[in-house]
Simulated scan of single mutants.
Amino acid sequence: MGRRSALLATAGAVALLTTAGTLTTPAPATATTTASAPTRTAAACGEGSYQAEAVRSGGTWTARRGGTVVHTGGDMRAAVQAAVNSLTAGRTAKERVVVRGSGTVSAGSRISLPSYTVLDVCGTIDVTGSGSGDQAPVYSRGTRDVEVQHLNVTGRPLYGIFMRNVHNVVLGRIDMRLSSGLGVRIDNRGDTSQWTRNVRIDDVYVSGASSHAVETYGVDGITIGTVTARNVGESGLLLNQTINATVTRVDADGAGTGTGYAAFRMANRNGRIGSGYPTNIRVGEVIARGGGRGVFCVSESGGAVIDRVNISDTGNNSVLIENCHNVTLAAHSGSVTGGGGIRLAARSEFANNSDITVQNLTVTNTSVRESPCGTNTTFRNITLVNSSQSVC
């Protein structure tokens, strides 16, 4: 018996012995899983306890809750949704669905996750066809305490993950190798009077998207580990009107080629709290190779500290800070090589830059320019190598 067959046989045996509807697959002693707390992303996909599963065997998907089959058929989306729908109605603690197998889902459809749901996809969702609106293979709206532990997506989704007006969201290890669409979108645009709150994203890889790898809008409280973007059409990570954000690393190669988008972009009053810009956006490192811009702050955004930058050969500005406030670039160290220069600028419809610090940089084969002069701008500890500087 193969490893996967043995695993399914074990799950079936447990299902016959339990009356609570909770299935368990073998896990190392160091891995722990509970219904109400995020699972460690280091755990292998499918390990630990779960309440329902959707399993592919040949061309047939079977969804089970405990020992009860709730769906059989050839449609992956229908099977996964049936497994999700079989969880306890009105629950106030997380219950988990494990998906075992790969399949196709239409770009015009969704797997909808209600509150207190954990989804762990051990396989690949390939998105085919066309759709419109906010369709996504993984979708949640107006919910709380939703977790996606593992997810692999290929194909042409409108969005890989779409979440709107949600609270307490965890995304674990997300891998999207796309032909179009946007990777992860989390926002509050259904009811802009309410923030989306308390979001955690551990590790996201997106390639081939025609839009952004990861985008937020209207989020208060987000912690991001690593966003890796490869040859996406627009930004690697775009934060719009998002406050209280911590990002460990943005690593982008070819993000926004031929556009004004950037490996890391802040826009639409990102980081603005009330009428001020206290430091509340903290980024450990931005890596940008090629693409459009490296770092772009625009439209009354700010309150940001970026510790390290490593930017080279961008097609547009390496860094553009435009109508922003209280931004520190390279608080610890950084390098900017080739490509477009570092530029501080302003549009007439917004207040000019203020309290911008650019420091601790080695700038090679490009330029540093400020025009018009901002308020309380600081340039310090900048080493120019075959580069020019024109600042106020």
Rank of each mutant, 00 (worst) to 15 (best):
A9T: 14
T10E: 14
L17S: 15
T19E: 11
A20P: 00
A27E: 13
A31M: 12
T34P: 08
E47A: 15
S49G: 08
R56D: 11
S57I: 11
R65D: 05
V70N: 03
G74D: 14
A79Y: 02
V80D: 03
A93R: 12
K94L: 14
R96V: 07
T104W: 00
R110D: 06
S115A: 13
V118F: 09
V118S: 15
D120L: 03
C122I: 00
G123R: 07
G133V: 01
D134Q: 14
D134N: 14
Q135A: 14
Y139E: 00
R144Y: 06
R144M: 12
V148P: 05
G155Y: 07
Y159N: 08
I161A: 05
R164Q: 14
V169I: 15
G172T: 05
L178K: 05
S179P: 01
G183E: 04
G190L: 09
T196W: 03
I201N: 09
G208P: 06
S211I: 10
T216G: 04
Y217Q: 13
G218A: 05
V219K: 08
V219I: 12
V227E: 04
T228D: 08
A229N: 05
A229H: 05
R230Y: 13
R230Q: 14
L237Q: 11
L238W: 11
T246I: 12
D253H: 11
D253W: 13
D253K: 12
G254W: 05
A255W: 05
A263P: 10
R269A: 15
G271V: 09
Y277S: 10
R282Y: 11
G284F: 12
E285R: 14
V286H: 02
G291K: 04
G291W: 01
G292V: 10
F296G: 03
C297V: 13
C297N: 11
G302F: 01
G303R: 09
I306Y: 06
T314I: 03
N323I: 01
N326F: 07
L329T: 02
A331C: 01
S333E: 13
G334Y: 02
G339E: 09
G341V: 08
I342A: 04
A351R: 13
V358L: 11
V358W: 09
Q359D: 00
T362C: 00
V363A: 02
V363F: 07
T366R: 01
S367R: 10
C373M: 01
T383M: 05
